[in-house]
Amino acid sequence: MIGWFARRFGHLLLVMFGASCLVFLLIHLIPGDPIEVMLGEHAQAADREALRARLGLDRPLPVQFGAYLGGLARGELGTSIHSGRAVAELLVERLPATVELTLAALLFAILLAIPLGISAALHHGRARDATAMTFSLIGVSVPNFLLGPLLILVFSLWLGWTPVSGRMGFSSLLLPALTLGSGMAAITARMVRGSLLEVLREDYIRTARAKGLGPRAVIWRHALRNAWLPVLTLIGLQLGALLGGAVVTETVFSWPGIGSLMIESIQKRDYPIVQGCVLLISLSYVLVNLVTDLAYAWVDPRIRLGSSE
């Protein structure tokens, strides 16, 4: 178990390091001059040189790379070109909103998907199954940037129940969380259904039924315990999609999180901030995946035993 954990942790560090390098390469190696992009084609040569020197872009690439990694190790991510504030500080300011939104969306998705999936599987092939799966197919097919404006139109503009945008208390969280969580709810419901149906075909379920256990006990004690595993992996993977989807959802609702910060900074061509946002979101994603793996190992003893040899 300890060996397995150490290997996973080593892999995590490697991927985090690699992701950081990749972000650096993205910004620095792609053809085109970021200075020109930031200042426009008609900027004075002197202004360009001044900005280049301020951002350290006049130094050789390996030196810049060393400085970048050194900064990362100290938690420094550079400063904003426009406001001059530390990027790390801006990220810390915006992070709670994104965490709040993502967790709310996750909670909504799980609370909706699990009962829906179980109920569909237990009524396999009948009307309730078909209805649940139709809803889930619709949920998968409606993108965030469409659902968001539609929800705003109905619940904010017509009914006046929730604020149109911003982050002011619980009511303002409802629509963004619903928007962000709907796709995940749909995918998870399908997975719960599929996984449960597969487990219900196993011999040990027939055995449990044959020894006279009631349907409730068969589902809860025997079927669901094993149906969880693929669902858990999917939830971990989907959390990454949530973190990515948050960029769009936050923009729709002017939710003051990392995602809207990133889009604002892209529009202002404030690349140090964009770089910081990409790094923060992807590192969170890697961490989430590690936690999922750990949870998986905790739930399924076969994985611990299988890989600790």
């Binding site: 892999h11 991927v15 993205l26 999609a241 990133m262 892209i266 979101i281 992807s282």
Partner: peptide, 19 residues
């Protein structure tokens, strides 16, 4: 593994903004 460390849409947004 490296590319999977980024949520897909995030990487696409970053790339599109740089390109």
């Amino acid at each position: 593994d490296l590319l999977m460390a980024f949520p897909g849409i995030l990487l696409a947004i970053a790339l599109a903004s740089i390109l």
